[in-house]
Nucleic acid binder design. Structure first.
Lengths: 171, 171
DNA sequence: TTCGGATAGTTCAAGCTTAAACTGTTTAAG
DNA sequence: CTTAAACAGTTTAAGCTTGAACTATCCGAA
């Protein structure tokens, strides 16, 4: 990415313009990542709806709670799910109304409440979770274990790289 | 869970349950891909809103039209964007109302209409598009070109693999 | 010709999502 | 103690998204 000797004029110019030719490739990479994720996500949503009559956000919230038997606060859930605060409020209300999730008050902080799965919620989630895991395995089945491992590693680099890029932004 | 007295019993059991141990890795891979995409997408949405007062779906629709100066039908757009038909109807109406997109009737098929960018829409999109390309390049900057290429290739395999898996489903 | 199925769009209700404004609570500085 | 800032959740308006039901049109076969 740096043919420096010879004539540096072009490189300087394009660098300053901020959109060197090679960046089309980044765009293609991004669009491919996005369509990959969308493809899988759409199918998972469809199956959750058809086979369990639920939705992905509800499943995701329950998955968070399943990992933490002691419960989680709404704020923690919203950070883990990378969604807004108000979103979790509505989602939680609906799950509580359906008897899948229960609220518990914090011992000393009256602002805070913990959410956890009810026994029934735990049962329901186990069924959904097992199916979900099978679906994912099925969708990735054609990719070799070696390639899956490589992909996992590369995505990890992208994730931390993006996090890093966003860290030094506005503060 | 299962306290295994013997040896092979566990493997058999878990295999028959349809959720072999190794499939947790697929789950992790999927969650990482999803959070990667979400991370980037959220940031792009934020910048489109703050810097251009627009949204990602509007930008995406205009991007489709920008690539096809002759125009596209609503159906084609919805398939390319991987969203529902009704979604495009609403999105198009809003863009037409804003003078960014125009409709044109099909010569012989009265059901069909073509959408294309207006001159003003083309101008606006060029600005947004250039910024968008810079943002993506910026977010991927910390990943080496070699790794980006590898990632692109692997995601291509996943995409076609998933498409294949979904093809032999219900039909 | 006409009838039935396929196709292009639209509409609608329901749910998701967000940013921003808001309430109530805690914490820490003065 | 007082007060201001930080924090946990809630509410609200606006927009996105979907699946399903619907209208209108086209096209091919009997």
């Amino acid at each position: 990415m740096s043919p420096d000797d010879g004539r540096a004029a072009v490189d300087l110019e394009t660098a300053l313009a901020g959109t060197p030719a090679g960046h089309k490739e980044d765009l293609r990479l991004w669009l491919r990542m996005l369509s990959c994720a969308t493809l899988i996500e759409t199918e998972i949503r469809r199956r959750l709806r058809e086979q369990f009559g639920t939705t992905l956000p509800r499943f995701d919230l329950m998955a968070q709670l399943d990992r933490e038997p002691d419960g989680l606060t709404l704020g923690r859930i919203s950070r883990r799910m990378m969604v807004s605060n108000g979103n979790v409020t509505a989602l939680a209300a609906s799950l509580v109304a359906d008897g899948l999730v229960q609220r518990r008050a914090h011992a000393t902080d009256r602002r805070t409440q913990f959410l956890s799965l009810t026994p029934h919620g735990r049962l329901v989630f186990e069924l959904q979770s097992a199916a979900h895991e099978r679906w994912i395995a099925e969708l990735f089945a054609s990719v070799s274990p070696r390639d899956r491992a490589a992909l996992h590693r590369l995505l990890g680099m992208v994730k931390s790289g993006v996090r890093q890029a966003l860290k030094g932004e506005s503060p």
